[in-house]
Amino acid sequence: MPEVPLLKVNNLIKEFPLGGGLFAEPRARVRAVDDVSFALSRGETFGLVGESGCGKTTLGRLILRLVEPTSGDVEFDGQHILALGAKEMRLLRRRMQIIFQDPYASLDPRMKVNAIVTEPLCAIQNLAKSERKKVAAELIEKVGLRAADLDKYPHEFSGGQRQRISIARALCVRPDLIVADEPVSALDVSIQAQVINLMADLKKEFQLSYVFISHDLSVVEHISDRIAVMYLGTIVELAPAVSFSDSPRHPYTAALLRAVPMPDPHRKTEPFPMEGDAPSPIDPPPGCAFHPRCPHAFERCRVEKPSLVKTARQHFVACWLNNSRGLGIE
């Protein structure tokens, strides 16, 4: 019997209306997330990469039901969360938390650290002041700060320290899942390493699962067990992190990998074949959304959208090149 995955996302779609007023029909719709499905096991880190605007944040928010999907379904530990009422949802929230990118904007500047880190817990249960302090002290030491820091305000901390505070806050309710939306993107390399190591340690200690969102491929490869590459709202490739950089199957993944400047002066990055900007999600190209930038595009790519199919163990790709080679469709 395979165990029930902690998180299951089924055919999620999210459209945002654009323009139009309260009563007017919107002029257009952006399909920010376009038919995304995947499952996440307990203790797994699921990396999500892709260019700006491809729908990573929207997908993260859909998972926590911070926005309602247009259609599709999210199962958390076997429960269909979209069917839950407000009260049940609030209880479930203690098991899923989010960390945001910007350590400067995401912490309330008027609250002391003590109140910030225990807020998610206080939202669901009454805590005596002394109890609250005790919980906070324990958490803050877990993330490498000192109990004395609890009486300070966010502006008294550096970016990396603020991100530790965000992590302490997310851990407060002992969640099973943390969606981390670009948690290290605003940090210096040396501080980024501290936070990545901390997240890895906490994952082990608390059996956490992460959805780790980033546009930095090296970071995602480092921390993830599996990696999903998104393009214009869809997952175009899903692969184990160990083989990710080695054997990309989607031309977009290959182009992304090739575009990362190598931190090695002896290995000059090859000239870059992909031209143009990512197309607009308001008016996505027909067929495979990547075809206008793809060096391998052929007729079928322009008319028919490829779906995500299995090409190897744990490896899924949405590209006609793989399909037409007849690699096992599941």
Binding site: V189, A193, I196, L217, E221, F244, S245, M262
Partner: peptide
């Protein structure tokens, strides 16, 4: 302290 692409494949230690 910098993660590098290919670290995982090369089996480099997971701690930065």
């Amino acid at each position: 302290s910098m993660p590098r692409l290919g670290d995982r494949r090369a089996g480099r230690p997971p701690r930065l």
